[in-house]
Design a protein around this nucleic acid. Structure first.
Length: 288
DNA sequence: TGATATGTTATCTT
DNA sequence: CAAGATAACATATC
């Protein structure tokens, strides 16, 4: 489920509670999602919680303020959730399912992380696409190899974007969802950004004019920033009111999931077609 | 029953 | 070799 705004939201919430906590252990309910040495984790402290692309990072050290020596990398993929629970509160987020409110661990809980103070962090994932990787801090650059700049980062500059697009004949929507070009734009926000910029998802990337690339660059940053501000997107009517877990971007969504409805730019008909295997929503009038 | 799903990557086919 | 399309991962829901 999660796109970058949802991941960023989870990271912010966990950053408020995890740093300083000492890990007691990991309980593996399923072996597939975990790679790396889980036996090295007990006694380690969470020093920081960070993010790169859609990868959540728990930086671990021997004391609460030590430089991190190991990092847990977590990818939620389509259906992952991270839910933190102590005796006061339940926070976190990810794919909206009954596990948000049910007793945990549930049948979808793959990993439970326990802390010395009794708090627990549950990793739930219906489809088992998500993963945890435990690596040495020195291996972090290797783990990020091949990733382009984050859409939220200063390094995602307009000249860089122009240069990359000028090389590709790919449909523009496929290009902006390619992590080698730019990280953090998933299917929902790709559709949204192209609508804001009034560009057809099917246009070859290198066919965009300089003005169009500029508008798209800005639109991508704008829709991602709004997504983060609203705490991500929760496309599930049952859980939208659950404080601490649901996002609100779905209340301002422009085209995604709105086939047959009017375009917010021009009132034209929003259509849905398949592009590179993904549902693609766009205005048939103004996205040219 | 079949289509679809907010992600990424391997493997085909041109 | 490269671009582009398709399949694959595994499960749930409509």
């Amino acid at each position: 489920m999660p796109e970058l705004p949802e991941v960023e939201t989870i990271v912010c919430k966990l950053r408020a509670v995890l740093p300083g906590k000492q890990i007691a252990g990991l309980e593996l309910h399923h072996t597939k999602p975990l790679q790396g040495a889980a036996e090295s984790l007990p006694q380690q402290y969470v020093v920081a919680v960070s993010r790169r692309a859609k990868i959540i990072q728990f930086e671990l050290g021997a004391t609460p303020t030590a430089p991190p020596t190991a990092i847990i990398l977590i990818h939620l993929k389509m259906t992952g959730q991270l839910i933190y629970q102590d005796d006061q509160q339940r926070i976190g987020g990810g794919h909206p399912t009954p596990d948000w409110v049910d007793q945990l661990p549930s049948k979808h809980t793959r990993i439970t992380m326990t802390f010395a103070d009794g708090a627990r962090l549950f990793f739930n994932d219906q489809r088992l696409f998500g993963w945890w990787k435990i690596i040495a801090a020195t291996d972090l650059p290797q783990a990020h190899a091949g990733l382009g700049p984050d859409v939220t980062d200063d390094t995602f500059t307009l000249p860089y974007f122009q240069l990359e697009l000028a090389k590709k004949r790919l449909p523009i929507k496929v290009a902006i969802m390619d992590n080698r070009i730019v990280c953090g734009v998933g299917n929902i926000y790709a559709c949204e950004a192209l609508n804001v910029a009034r560009i057809s998802p099917f246009r070859p990337a290198l066919s965009l004019t300089e003005a169009e690339v500029t508008a798209l660059h800005q639109a991508m940053q704008q829709v991602i920033a709004l997504g983060i501000e609203l705490g991500g997107t929760t496309f599930d009517g049952k859980y939208v009111d659950i404080a601490g877990l649901a996002g609100q971007y779905q209340t301002v969504v422009r085209v995604y999931g709105r086939e047959g409805q009017p375009c917010p730019n021009c009132g034209g008909l929003i259509k849905k077609e398949k592009l590179a295997g993904r549902g693609t929503y766009f205005c048939s009038e103004c996205q040219i």
